[in-house]
Design a protein around this nucleic acid. Structure first.
Lengths: 173, 173
DNA sequence: GGAAAACCGTTACATCCGCAACGAGTTCGA
DNA sequence: TCGAACTCGTTGCGGATGTAACGGTTTTCC
């Protein structure tokens, strides 16, 4: 039949054996090792980290990921519009709209109309919102520090370099 | 008032000014720069790459991301079960179930019952499925090569090192 | 031998998401 | 000056997703 990638299909998970050096020897031109494919590895890594971090603010505050990003953006700039939130946090405007409404219902943010351009509304943190924002920032810093420690200083440094390359070379949106 | 992150809220996008050295000088303990936060950067990078790559197989074949991953996994091993697909491609079993059905309706895959364990069904590529798989593998290799070229050899190498650290240090699921 | 637990793949349901369209407001240009 | 084009934020809608439950099957363990 056709050529089989790994010997034992019942214990698949990492399955590196067949794809270790990836060039000479095997010459497996027909097959792609998904676990070595850069876009997949990137997506998987992001998902793992994101999920691990999300567990923190979800358990403690019941925040969703869009809500966390929105809060983080509003806290970073005080007084900001929905469109700017979307641009800064790479989120679709409908996602922002829904997250803002959710945060408003918690009384973590408040909106004010712009006196000159009445299409715009400015968003600010309430006192309560600021308090929770500070806690969440501390939590985020803690997680990031733990993550860097897990990855090792060089691992983290290399990751940041690689991400920097993507950020500068890929189309922003 | 509170301290403002960047000077000009109307031109926000990268907003590096306020967070460049990130330690001394500013002492911005209260605020987190989202664009410097590792989980966010990772998620954003993955999303950009994934979207750019997905555009290829979506335009040419109308495949979804779960379908592409499923196809890639089936092609990598010939004859595999749905559970194993999920484990190998980091997808939820319902995602796999739906992707498999979609691929079956295209006549790209076929299922056979296991003679001894009747809970299991083995999935294989049809002749047509193999043909498209080979084309998609070529497309994937091309994209990956282009991506590495965009990132530069060192950028890509560093990215791979960083991803390797995540893969070995983070909980698999 | 047989009940309980575990496993496989599917599906009902609630939720999330982005596209497209909307009303309201502003800017542009003839 | 007035209408076309654009912007802002919201929402209807269809499609995608994960949770929980399901029927069918196998394994475990008493």
């Amino acid at each position: 039949m056709t050529l089989r990638s790994a010997g034992n299909p019942t214990s698949i998970v990492p399955t590196r054996p067949a794809s270790a050096p990836s060039s000479l020897c095997g010459r497996d031109d027909e097959t792609l090792a998904l676990e070595d494919f850069l876009p997949y590895r990137l997506a998987r890594a992001a998902e793992m980290v994101s999920k691990q971090f999300a567990a923190h603010y979800r358990e403690q505050y019941g925040l969703t990921r869009p809500e966390w990003r929105t809060l983080a953006t509003i806290g970073q700039f005080d007084r900001i519009t929905a469109t700017e939130i979307g641009r800064h946090s790479s989120m679709h405007k409908t996602k922002v709209s829904r997250a803002v409404r959710a945060l408003e219902q918690r009384n973590w943010i408040a909106r004010t109309d712009d006196p000159v351009d009445r299409r715009i509304e400015h968003i600010v943190l309430t006192r309560e919102g600021k308090r929770h924002y500070r806690e969440l920032v501390r939590m985020a810093r803690d997680y990031e520090a733990r993550l860097v420690r897990m990855l090792g200083t060089t691992g983290a440094k290399h990751l940041e370099t690689g991400l920097g390359a993507i950020e500068t070379e890929l189309p922003g949106d």
